[in-house]
Design a binder for these strands. Structure first.
Length: 547
RNA sequence: GCGGUCGUAGCUCAGCUUGGAUAGAGCACCAGCCUUCUACCUUUAAAGGAAGUAAGCUGGGGGUCGUGGGUUCAAAUCCCAUCGACCGCGCCA
């Protein structure tokens, strides 16, 4: 039984038009509301009068206990027991699937794809976190997701690293950042280095075996190091795609000849192949995309187009997580793909993470490394925990970092403040994990399994009803988050659940209650535990039973 | 210069797509609370006591929703202008 649907149907029968129900700002006003403003014009009547008329016309609606006209609103009060039973039973039945709206489809999601030149900094981590959460969301909904990381292994940065680590033995992942910063500094007032870099790139593009190996060695160290960090955060990839594959690939030639046929590809005065993108409304000074160098070797956009086509051909649905700095660039790629008869992936753009000290830049070395930050977080978590346990401390610390970044909507800058991210109070990861642990603790004390049945009609305290209503929203929240590819919607919701739970926890004792009520409440908090677990998992936060 | 995103309480953020009932959270600040179901003590282990702890709760103060126009019965929400922040705009990736 779907009470909301019952109300909608009943109104539709009378009004013969699409009904949109709202939720009143205060539950004392009712559970669902129907505003009568829009009817005023055609019925030539004041909205409050319409509301009162409607009451008379509406008969009994299943699951609705009362209908009230409050000014221009028609407010519906639902039968609390119905909603409680319906919600809790659904959760108990669906368990870790509760909230999912099954949509079987194949999706390729590309995320992270940062330069493989050093340890990732906190800012770049946002890409991986958002990407991973979307992966989880889609998999939760039954999709067959293929996670890709596009490794830019043929770039200038790698050449710089190769040059910088010349003569150094046994280069480790942790050394790379320093090497990179050093060589950048040196190259700034030394044109010789610049030359050497291009020589290296040249040799690579010619396919020189020794150069290829040098590049590969460095990139391997990088990818290994980065994967290790991300794996620590439970972020994993199904496949690493290397840009170098497209360096000598015939596909790029095919693309060029296809583009030539459209008449939009031309050779500019310096012999580069350039794509005319007029008519695509791309906000650049000159609507062109340069695809090759003068010697016709490919530039990144061309290789990216080849890669994207490969992805589009192997899955109908493609998603890519890109920084806001790539917005215009992505439009250009999209336009080029359109010309070739392909659709582009759905982009998820996010804004940067800002530190109080200013913007982070790997090149300059003024970064907060993700791994350093993770260590710091673990240290702080341990200090605050009652039970000292390394594994739990890590779970809490990583959760705190993830949540602090994920709770902000994609297009907004994250103002990253170390202390408030690691604070364990209020709207934070630890608060959510604590709510879960608290429930576990109650069951621990209870000492028995979750009761199988109970009289759920005993749950009628206001805090209980509000809590249940919150739980009931989860499926809609998941749908919305999946539609908008926005993990922050989940984050905000899980916090709301934890908050409602805390309110309930203070208003309603559990273990000291009489048997029947105790059982009902145990079943309720077990459902809460399930929803918290489902929601937290979508964010990539692990739950703990004690902390 | 052109284009995009953002601008909501001292700070960090929801709400804006689909305009409506007093603009919501968190942090910080002030005042309380007690249910300890992850902190203390006692004992017949379920209650009592006590302390003042708290990843907790309640209440409070605090807002020209950047600014100025417009549309509308109604604007944080839509439109225009303007200011500010960030990002982008041919041979980097």
């Amino acid at each position: 039984m779907d009470i909301k649907q019952n109300i909608t149907d009943a109104l539709h029968k009378i009004l013969k038009k699409d009904i949109v129900l709202e939720v009143p700002p205060d539950s004392a006003l009712g559970d669902y509301a129907f505003p009568c403003f829009n009817l005023a014009k055609e019925m030539r009547k004041a909205p409050p009068l319409i509301a009162q008329d409607l009451i008379k016309k509406l008969g009994k609606i299943e699951g609705v206990s009362q209908i009230k006209a409050t000014g221009p609103y028609l407010n519906f009060f639902v039968n609390k027991t119905d909603i409680v039973e319906e919600t809790i039973n659904t959760i108990r039945k669906q368990k870790d699937k509760y909230g999912a709206s099954i949509k079987k489809e194949k999706i390729i999601i590309e995320h992270t794809s940062i330069n493989p030149n050093a340890s990732p900094h906190v800012g770049r981590a946002r890409n991986a976190l958002i990407g991973d959460s979307i992966v989880r969301l889609m998999r939760f909904n039954g999709a067959d997701v293929d996670v890709r990381y596009f490794v830019n292994d043929v770039g200038k940065q790698i050449a710089m690293l190769v040059l910088g680590s010349k003569g150094k033995k046994n280069v480790q992942f942790d050394d790379l950042l320093k090497i990179y910063v050093d060589i950048n500094e040196k190259s700034e007032n030394n044109s010789k280095i610049e030359k050497e870099v291009f020589e290296l790139l040249n040799n690579l593009e010619k396919g020189d075996a020794a150069t290829k190996k040098k590049f590969k060695d460095i990139v391997d160290i990088c990818i290994k190091g980065q994967s290790k960090i991300f794996k620590e955060l439970e972020i994993e990839y199904d496949k690493f795609d290397y840009e170098s594959k497209f360096l000598w690939d015939k596909k790029t030639e095919e693309i060029l000849s296809k583009l030539k046929k459209t008449g939009k590809l031309f050779e500019d005065e310096e012999n580069r192949l350039v794509l005319n993108q007029e008519g695509y409304n791309i906000p650049v000074k000159n609507p062109v995309l340069v695809l090759t160098r003068a010697d016709k070797t490919s530039l990144y956009p061309l290789r990216d187009i080849a890669y994207t086509i490969e992805k589009m051909e192997s899955a109908k649905k493609n998603i890519i997580i890109l920084g806001e700095d790539q917005k215009t660039y992505f439009q250009q790629i999209k336009a080029a793909l359109d010309l070739l008869g392909y659709k582009a992936p759905v982009p998820v753009h996010y804004s940067f993470v800002l530190l109080a000290e200013g913007k982070m830049s790997t090149r300059k070395g003024n970064v907060v490394l993700l791994e350093d930050f993770m260590k710091e977080a673990v240290k702080k978590a341990k200090e605050k925990m009652k039970k000292k346990n390394d594994k739990i401390a890590k779970t809490i610390a990583y959760g705190a970092v993830k949540y602090a970044i994920l709770k902000v909507s994609n297009e907004k800058n994250v103002m990253f403040d170390l202390d408030s991210a690691l604070s364990f109070e209020g709207d934070t990861g630890p608060y959510l994990q604590y709510s879960y642990a608290r429930i576990c603790s109650i069951f621990d004390k209870y000492g028995k399994k979750v009761p199988l049945t109970a009289d759920l009609s005993l749950l009628k305290d206001n805090s209980e009803i509000e809590l249940v209503k919150e739980l009931a929203r989860f499926p809609d929240i998941v749908k919305q988050a999946a539609n908008e590819l926005s993990p922050y919607i989940i984050a905000n919701y899980v916090f709301a659940v934890a908050k409602r739970f805390s309110e309930f926890y203070h208003a309603c004792p559990i273990l000291t209650e009489k048997e029947e009520l105790k059982k009902a409440r145990l079943i309720l908090i077990d459902a809460v535990r399930q929803v918290l677990a489902n929601g937290l998992d979508l964010l990539g936060l692990k739950v703990v039973e004690e902390m």
